[in-house]
Design a protein around this nucleic acid. Structure first.
Lengths: 230, 230
DNA sequence: CCAAAAAGAGAGCACCGCTCTTGCACGGGA
DNA sequence: TCCCGTGCAAGAGCGGTGCTCTCTTTTTGG
């Protein structure tokens, strides 16, 4: 992995990185639909068939970009969490949400790649799943900190959702009350609903001051998971 | 518009409808990315160039499908609202939300077409915008009914959001309190966050009993806009 | 009844993803 | 140090795409 055993392997890694970089540039400029292997090859001064030595297909290149995008967003949210480690959980939650939104605004096409419509019939490989989970883990961590520290507001779930709530909590955060797990997953999806609507233009002619609107919505999301304003 | 002045015009409408139908079938089977004008023409026994007499480009055909999809979803939500006209607003809200989710589950590729990543550089024409608004209007109507009838729980917005809230209320629902307008827009985006995460597979290995989970989340969304349980 | 408009057919252009074959140049074992 | 095998780039080519242009046929309306 990190052992550059030979000059050969190193060159291969460099070319692979150059391909991904050029592809990411094209993705940012034209979007995933227009990303073309031949154009990437042209930009790199190669012939298109040479690219297949590095990525077996266009989908594999896209998958690599997807993983990188998840990692980039995950790292950004982790940095935001760490930078806000000394503010109370509700404010930390808002800070992470705003970082997610900021990342999406800065990388709209990469955001579309990971949270927009997936390719039909495309099922994410395991590596993708792991990368995708990072943002969620950050959010869970904030709620856990509140639970272990200043406390979490009590929530409730209807009886019919009880088993599911306990299953979700066992999988996601065994140390959290089941109702918090349910609220967390819902807030997670709702956060990306807010971000997606802004990125994809659904807020055009509807929301003007998006910064303020989002901050407020993120705060209400925090209340929804039981984070009480300090 | 509705005057079939000649057999010629009627034939044109029929062919146009046949093209859209075949395209919708292909869309449902393979997704928007694989929708090909040539394949549609083949299925209809025409040559591909003949199709351009009806739709100037592939994007125009896609736009027609988008409008139809918005209309289909809008009509479904209006039917759900009318069917639940005699239950209290919170239950009506949940019914409409569940109908939106049901429509999305039944037409995942059409859902992806309208609420997934838009085509790069694609900007929705005005006709699209109007069709897109129908679901939102249904949600607004439910809150309005509650406001005029059994009452709406009081909400609050921070001072910084006040002007935006009043602007949004003036545009969307002048008879509603500004705080309700803000909550409504947020709930609207969050609803599609929940639906999108389920449709696009983000809930895989996370949420099992999606029916119950969604019902509960929709109920909490209703509370968030001030609809108090009867 | 005939000119004009509309519609279909076909060839063709540039581009795409992907495959296969062919040379070549380099790197590691002898 | 040499030399062979291997990894890589190059090129041609296949079937597909969106789209344009021209030509012919069909229908319509004055």
């Amino acid at each position: 992995m990190s052992t550059p055993q030979g000059a050969r392997a190193r060159a291969r890694q460099e070319v692979t990185a150059a391909i991904k970089e050029a592809a990411r540039r094209q993705l940012a400029e034209e979007g995933a639909a227009k990303l073309s292997l031949r154009a990437v090859a042209r930009e790199l001064g190669m012939v298109s068939s040479a690219l297949y030595r590095y990525f077996p297909s266009r989908d594999d290149l896209l998958t690599a970009l997807i993983i990188d995008a998840y990692d980039s967003l995950g790292a950004a949210s982790e940095r935001a969490r760490d930078a806000a480690c000394d503010v109370p959980p509700p404010a930390r939650w808002i800070a992470v949400c705003e970082t997610v939104r900021g990342w999406a605004l800065a990388h709209p096409h990469e955001y579309a790649l990971i949270y927009g419509s997936p390719v039909p019939g495309y099922s994410a490989p395991d590596t993708t799943v792991r990368a995708a989970a990072r943002v969620g883990l950050v959010l869970i961590g904030i709620v856990r900190d509140a639970h272990l520290g200043p406390g979490l507001a009590g929530l409730s779930v209807p009886a019919g959702l009880r088993p599911e709530a306990e299953r979700m909590a066992a999988d996601l955060a065994p140390d959290l009350p089941p109702e918090a797990a349910v609220a967390l997953v819902a807030a997670w999806a709702q956060l990306f609903g807010l971000v997606g609507f802004e990125i994809f233009g659904q807020f055009n002619r509807v929301v003007e001051d998006r910064e303020a609107f989002f901050r407020h919505a993120a705060g209400r999301l925090a209340e929804g998971v039981g984070l009480t304003a300090a």
